[in-house]
Computed example of a mutant assay.
Amino acid sequence: MNASHCPRCGQRNQCAQAESATPVSDCWCFGAAIDPALLDSLPPEQRNRACLCPRCAQGLAPLKPQAAAD
Rank of each mutant, 00 (worst) to 15 (best):
E19V: 12
A69H: 03
N13C: 06
K64N: 07
S20H: 07
P54D: 06
S20N: 13
M1P: 15
C29S: 01
C9I: 11
C29H: 02
A67C: 03
L52Y: 00
W28D: 01
V24H: 03
S25K: 08
R55Y: 13
C53E: 04
C56G: 04
I34Q: 04
A67R: 06
C51F: 06
L39Y: 04
E45Y: 09
A57H: 00
L52S: 07
R47K: 04
W28V: 00
Q11H: 07
C15D: 15
E19K: 14
C9N: 10
C6L: 07
Q46D: 10
A50D: 12
A32V: 11
P65C: 06
A61E: 14
Q14M: 08
R8K: 14
R12D: 13
E45R: 07
L39S: 00
P36V: 09
C27Y: 03
Q11R: 12
R12W: 11
A32K: 09
C53M: 07
N13M: 08
L38S: 07
H5T: 09
Q14K: 13
C15R: 14
R47Y: 01
E45F: 08
T22Q: 12
N13G: 11
Q11E: 11
L38Y: 05
S25M: 09
D70T: 14
D70C: 10
G31C: 02
K64H: 10
R12Q: 12
A69I: 04
P65M: 00
Q11K: 05
S20V: 07
C27G: 12
P54L: 10
S20I: 06
D70Y: 05
M1K: 11
Q17H: 14
L39Q: 01
A37N: 08
A50Q: 14
G31S: 08
S4F: 11
L52K: 04
I34W: 02
P36R: 03
I34V: 11
C29W: 00
A57K: 01
Q66Y: 15
G31M: 04
N13W: 08
P44I: 15
A68R: 12
S25P: 04
L42H: 01
R8I: 02
N2Y: 07
C51G: 03
A61N: 15
N48M: 15
P23T: 00
E45K: 05
R55K: 15
P23L: 06
S25W: 06
C56Y: 02
Q17D: 08
V24G: 02
P7I: 01
S41Y: 03
D70F: 09
Q14V: 11
S4D: 12
A21H: 10
P62I: 14
P54N: 06
L52Q: 04
Q14H: 14
P65K: 00
G59W: 00
A32D: 04
Q46E: 14
S25D: 10
V24W: 03
D35F: 02
